[in-house]
């Protein structure tokens, strides 16, 4: 293989916390998104430079991801949320079952975050829509939280979102 085609060396992310829950249980109460994001944010932020503000930022981002899984997930199977850390970045891996048509949607939404006109697209959606599309939620994470988002292969019907959040740099 040509050197230029090699995949970039993946940094080593250390696991911090992992939570699993029956999807049916998760979907039984909308407030699980808020509760889980607040709870996890507080746990993983305690040894950041500014734990209170890091937790606030992280909770914002994680809540949006959990809300996406709440709206787009299906009740059969488990939702898993794992958080890892490398340097100033936290990585969220969110795995949840969803219908096949949703997979295509997530794939397009994630690739939209890497478009050059992502900000324009984001501003358009704020100025036109009454309610945000899930597409916009990913743009929000990319633009307001400097998130890098990708999809990881996982066995259907599950999908895994991998979101890198360099919040230590943003907060401090």
């Amino acid at each position: 293989m040509d050197v230029a085609e090699k995949a970039p060396v993946e940094a080593t992310f250390e696991p911090l916390v992992q939570i699993e829950m029956e999807m049916e249980t998760f979907l039984s109460n909308w407030h699980h998104c808020d509760q889980l994001s607040t709870f996890i944010a507080r746990i993983i932020s305690h040894n950041r430079t500014d734990p209170v503000r890091h937790a606030n930022f992280f909770s914002s981002a994680l809540n949006e991801l959990l809300e996406v899984s709440f709206r787009g997930g299906s009740p059969d199977g488990q939702i898993g949320c794992a958080v890892y850390r490398h340097g100033r970045t936290e990585r969220v891996k969110l795995t949840f079952p969803c219908l096949s048509r949703q997979r295509q949607f997530f794939s397009e939404a994630v690739s939209n975050t890497r478009r050059e006109d992502a900000l324009t697209h984001y501003l358009d959606s704020i100025s036109t829509g009454l309610t945000p599309s899930r597409d916009v939620v990913f743009l929000d994470l990319a633009i307001n939280f400097d998130a890098q988002i990708r999809l990881e292969n996982s066995a259907p019907p599950s999908i895994t979102l991998v979101v890198d959040l360099p919040l230590e740099g943003v907060v401090s």
Binding site: D34, N56, S59, S60, N63, E64, E67, I126, S127, G129, L130, T131, P132, V136, V137, D140
Partner: peptide, 17 residues
């Protein structure tokens, strides 16, 4: 305002815009 999700943000922003 400690936390506001996108649903609420868009709704309030829409009114102001």
């Amino acid at each position: 305002l400690v936390q506001m999700n996108n649903t609420a943000f868009h709704a309030f922003a829409r009114v102001v815009l």
